[in-house]
């Protein structure tokens, strides 16, 4: 007991120190460590989420780039196909138009030839008629003083019949 007194051990002081430290321990645990751990965990979560989001964004970007390339390739193929189809269609249309035009031209030529032939025939007929009329007139003028009216008429009729037969 003497040693304890020498060192100043006092049950009241000892109890006070124990209570004091327990209070400080509680305060630190409740109001210092708890909020700090919460903050550290929140920050860790935020950082982890940020990294996760960045990774996801990178993946999405990669996927989008891949998709974009795929779409572009597809579009190029489609464009190539459309171009090729259009070219084929244009060739076909042109060929068809050319054929139609050729046919139309041939038809027109045939028509023109037929018309010309018809016109020629008509003109020949007309010419024959005119020639006959001129011949009759010429005959009338030539025989007016030589033959009588009756003979003139007979000669004209004869000539007319001959011309008619000829035509």
């Amino acid at each position: 007991m003497n040693i304890l007194q020498e060192f100043g051990v006092n049950p009241l002081l000892l109890a006070a120190q124990i209570v004091n430290f327990l209070i400080i321990l509680y305060l630190l645990k409740r109001f210092a460590y708890k909020p700090i751990f919460k903050m550290l965990n929140d920050r860790k979560k935020t950082i982890a989420e940020g990294i996760k989001n960045a990774e996801e964004a990178a993946k999405a970007l990669e996927k989008a780039t891949e998709e974009e390339k795929k779409v572009l390739r597809k579009a190029q193929e489609e464009a190539q196909r459309i171009l090729s189809d259009a070219k084929n269609q244009a060739d076909a249309t042109m060929s068809e138009a050319r054929d139609t035009a050729r046919k139309q031209v041939e038809q027109m030529l045939d028509d023109a030839r037929a018309k010309i032939a018809e016109d020629t025939k008509a003109m020949e007929k007309q010419l024959a008629v005119s020639t006959a009329a001129m011949a009759v007139d010429l005959l009338k003028q030539s025989v007016k003083d030589i033959f009588t009216a009756k003979e003139q008429q007979e000669a004209v009729n004869k000539l007319s019949k001959k011309i008619s037969k000829k035509n």
Binding site: F7, G8, V9, N10, L13, L14, A16, Q17, I18, N20, F21
Partner: peptide, 8 residues
């Protein structure tokens, strides 16, 4: 103070 260290 031994009371302090002993308490701890």
């Amino acid at each position: 103070d031994i009371n302090f260290t002993l308490a701890l």
